[in-house]
Write a protein that binds this DNA or RNA. Sequence first.
DNA 1: TGGAATAATAAGGTCAACCATAACATTTTT
DNA 2: AAAAATGTTATGGTTGACCTTATTATTCCA
Lengths: 222, 222
Amino acid sequence: MTVMHLSESTEMYLKAMAELGGQDAIAAARLAERLNVTPVSVNEMVRRLGEQGLVSHIPYKGVRLTKKGREVACNVLRRQRLWECFLYDHLKIEWSQVYEFACSLEHATAPEVTEALAGFLGNPQTCPRGNPIPAADGSFKPLDAMPLSEAKLGEMAQVLAVNATATDVLKYLQEKNILPGRVVTVIEVAPMQGPLTLHVGGKDVALGLSMAEFVLVKKIDK
Amino acid sequence: MTVMHLSESTEMYLKAMAELGGQDAIAAARLAERLNVTPVSVNEMVRRLGEQGLVSHIPYKGVRLTKKGREVACNVLRRQRLWECFLYDHLKIEWSQVYEFACSLEHATAPEVTEALAGFLGNPQTCPRGNPIPAADGSFKPLDAMPLSEAKLGEMAQVLAVNATATDVLKYLQEKNILPGRVVTVIEVAPMQGPLTLHVGGKDVALGLSMAEFVLVKKIDK
DNA sequence: TGGAATAATAAGGTCAACCATAACATTTTT
DNA sequence: AAAAATGTTATGGTTGACCTTATTATTCCA
Ligand SMILES: [Mn+2]
Ligand SMILES: [Mn+2]
Ligand SMILES: [Mn+2]
Ligand SMILES: [Mn+2]
């Protein structure tokens, strides 16, 4: 089984699916949003990925990673998050920029470099955004967390991870103190898909639902 | 002056010209060899680079970097050699593989990352192959060295740098102990473009002239 | 159950970076 | 001064990854 070289584009499609999808099928439109391409382009690409056995597409149901596709995706996530650790911990790059820089490096990283980097970093388990780093064999224990968007009024929760990728979104979350480790309390839930109001770090913060989807939290009792 | 994003291909053409050319014009055929493409492809690309003001082409004379092109090339060399330092000194990657891995990373490295990396490494002046690392402003003092291929019978010289890039060539030079710092003595020069025989590290080594062109040395008196 | 919304396809383009083959121009060598 | 070698241009292809503008198919919902 030769390890063909996959393009940056291919790796990004697979990574996006792993980040969005968990196990279930993903609507092509969601992929299009995240990758900033048109749905037509996603459909074309999905056909190509299907031919390579990386995804399966059930029309009108969605796209799903195959075993092979998931393996590749986990490996991309590993490279990405290891670079995030290096950029943040050793190069002292701005937290909100770490993702985008790592997202370039991930595609230019040979297996030998990935593993040497993991060793250099001491085999970290999570990246600066709180996401778990898949092991070299691809194994991967997903966070036991729920999206903040599902939290109810009055609930307290601890932020475990931020799954956003856009630098401006990350910058916004950083400014508002919505960062891994922080505890937030939901003090208002506006109707009609309106924003959540949170209490965090001594301040009140309004957070739109779609942003809150990318904040993964663990409920705290009491 | 917006810093348009240059493709990997563009960066590799410019870097190859800086590595091969020094100041003078480079024959398109030399570029084609180094980049493993056909001369026709080089001509097409040279046209595109010319339109962007990165090179100037005098037909039948050769291609030459413009000021702007040289700046870009030096910046690519900076990124490349900084990564070489990191991979070799911190990740303990095999000496002969360091170039090829750095050659991927160089195109995926934002300016902020380049400068943070330089700081992390303590602003090194040379890469593991002995080549000088251009400064952040692009300034660059070339080695005061000659190619080993020009050494005369009986001469002693110290290896300053190895300018080869192919992993198998680097592996060969490493095996034969032709590495930065080593002192070599020319004990035979075969006629008809034949190989040099060197004494280095207690052993006699035959080295073809074309490989010797990529070994930069400083003559040692007596 | 019939629209509306959503998803998928079809058709026709673009662009960068490669390829081969052939014709032509210039330089170098004999 | 020819001939040979080298370099350049012209033509015509390919591939991956995008795009737009229809058209068609399916699902969802009132
Ligand atoms: Mn990426
Ligand atoms: Mn390169
Ligand atoms: Mn088409
Ligand atoms: Mn053409």
